[in-house]
Each structure stands twice: as C-alpha cells, then as structure tokens.
Design a protein around this nucleic acid. Structure first.
Lengths: 153, 153
DNA sequence: CTGTTTGTTTTGTCAATACCGAACAAACGG
DNA sequence: CCGTTTGTTCGGTATTGACAAAACAAACAG
C-alpha cells in the first residue's frame, strides 16, 4: 500500500473516531489531496477502490452534513464533488453544537432536581456553568480566527 | 417511564452521539443526579435495570477514560463508584485532543504533498492553520474559566 | 474451613449498519 | 427513438460491538 492509500485509509479510521463512517473519511481524505480538487463519481470509485453505490450514498450524506458540494459544469453530463470552502470552520461549528448539547443535558438535569438540595445539584451546576461559559467564548475565538486569517493572507 | 428514567435513557443516547456507549451514558447520567453521589455496583444495577457484567465492564472503561473513580471505605466490603471531580474540564481536554487529531491529519497530508503546488496544498494548509490556532487558544480559554470560577464561588 | 458476598471474565446472542452488487431511473447524444 | 452514460435505490451479506448470563475468582465473615 503506497503512502497515499495509507493516508486515505488512516483518514477513514480517523473519521470513525469523530462519528463519521470510514467511507466518508476516505472521500474527505482523497478530496483534500487530489488534483484537481473536484472529482467525478467515477474518479472517486477508481481512487478509493469502492463501489458506485457506496460513493453515491456517502456523498449524499456528506452533502446533507454540509461538508461536500456538487459542482455541475455547462455542457458536462456528469457532476463533480468537492469539499465545501471553509469546511473546517463549519466543522468547528458542529463541535460548538456538541458543547451546547452538554449544556442542554445539564439544564434538563437541573430541572429534574429543581427541588433538591444545592449540594445534590452541584454536579450538574458545574457542568452547566462550564458549558455555558464555553458556548459564550467559542464564537469569539472563531471571530478572532477570521481576523487573524485576514492578516495572514 | 418516569422523568428520571427518561433522563437517563436520553443521556445514554447523547453519550452515543459523543462516542461513548449507551450504557456509559446511563451510568454518567445516573451518577449526576443520584443521592448520594457515590453508588455501589448493586445500586447501579438496580437503578439502570441492567446486569452486573455490563456495569463491571462499563465502569472499568469509564475509569480508564478518567471519567469515573472507585472509592473504597474502611470496614466496607464493596466499592463505590462516583464521577471524578472536575469531570467536565477534563472532558474538554479530550475535545482538545480531538482538535489535535485534525491538525495531525493535516500535517500528514502536507508532508505527502511536500513537492506539490501551493495551490494544491491550500486545502490542507487551511485545515492546518485553523487547528493550530485552536490548539493555541483552547488552553487559554480553560485558564480563563478557572479564573472566572474562582470569582463565582 | 466453609459459605456468602463482591467483582471479573468469558461466551454467546442479538441488533445495527457499512458496504456492495444489481436492478432501476433519468437524461442526454446520436 | 434507441442506446449509452450517469446516478440512485433496493436487497442481501458480513462485520462489528453492545449487552447479558453464567462460570469463575477473590476476599471476607462466621
């Protein structure tokens, strides 16, 4: 297995760690390094040694996730797939949503223990306070990122 | 199903979203709301309507993850399980590690395309830059959290 | 020393799902 | 209008892994 194939496979394994499927990871990995950056379904089948159906299903999934987009060209019969621009900032957005999920679970717990001792509520209160803080700070970080990026380029 | 059971089940589903097992989520959910905050294996079996073996396996997993700890008391035959103090700040630490994972995959891709055009490397470069930025900012946020928490309490 | 309590590990089962092949649908070119 | 290309969907398969029952191990009480 050559280094490129290895990279793609490892990207697949990484994808599984973060809650995607292996095939989704392979597609993302390939679309990060391929030339040109947009690929047809057939090219994906070739590059990833997989079936049309897997590509079809997984690209649709990644499109609904907002990670991929379809590009069509006039006079071209087939579509191209490519990573959305700013894929990783929107990926951070998803992480942020996860933090919100934590906060919501803390909220629900606190509602459940509305009449309990503060001592008993403390565990949930700490969880709530942290994720509320994070939810407030996170957007600011991303703003600063946008700023810094402007100065880089 | 009463509200408490519902909460525990939903915590299980939430746990699956973030890469834990459903049972792990149920245990965490229960240990967040139970009284007292430390529970024996038998109490967990009772509260979660599950088997000894599942509790044993899952608590061990959560202990290696650094989310649970065993408490033993002198003159007591059985152990108690409880959430580690500062569970959620260390949970944020794990999120931070995930961001590092993204950066590493970007690094590997850039190494793979070491001799390629900058244009072709751009996708990976952006990924690299963002996650490097996040890895730098994240610890600072957590420091500020520690500060703010002191002032609250 | 024996039996009971506490916890672990092994083994099996069941459910979920990723993936593929093949049938199907749609659209365009000749 | 017909055949080829492009893409989707359906059905089947195989793998994975969560969970539980039961066998096992260990430690303490009497």
């Amino acid at each position: 297995m050559n280094p490129t194939q290895q990279y793609i496979e490892d990207f697949g394994l990484f994808a599984e760690q973060i809650g995607l499927t292996r095939m989704a990871g392979r597609i993302l990995g390939w679309l990060l390094i391929c030339d040109p950056p947009h690929q047809t379904m057939h090219e994906l089948v070739d590059a990833l040694q997989t079936s049309k159906s897997s590509i079809s299903t997984t690209t649709r999934m990644l499109i609904t996730f907002g990670m991929l987009e379809r590009v069509s060209l006039p006079g071209e019969r087939r579509d191209y797939y490519r990573l959305v621009p700013d894929l990783w900032t929107s990926s951070m957005e998803r992480s942020s949503q996860q933090f919100t999920g934590f906060r919501k679970m803390a909220d629900r717990g606190l509602a459940l223990l509305a009449d309990a001792d503060p001592e008993r509520r403390q565990r949930l209160q700490e969880m709530h306070d942290l994720y509320t803080f994070i939810a407030r700070e996170f957007p600011q970080i991303m703003e600063r990122w946008q700023e810094e990026r402007k100065t880089i380029s």
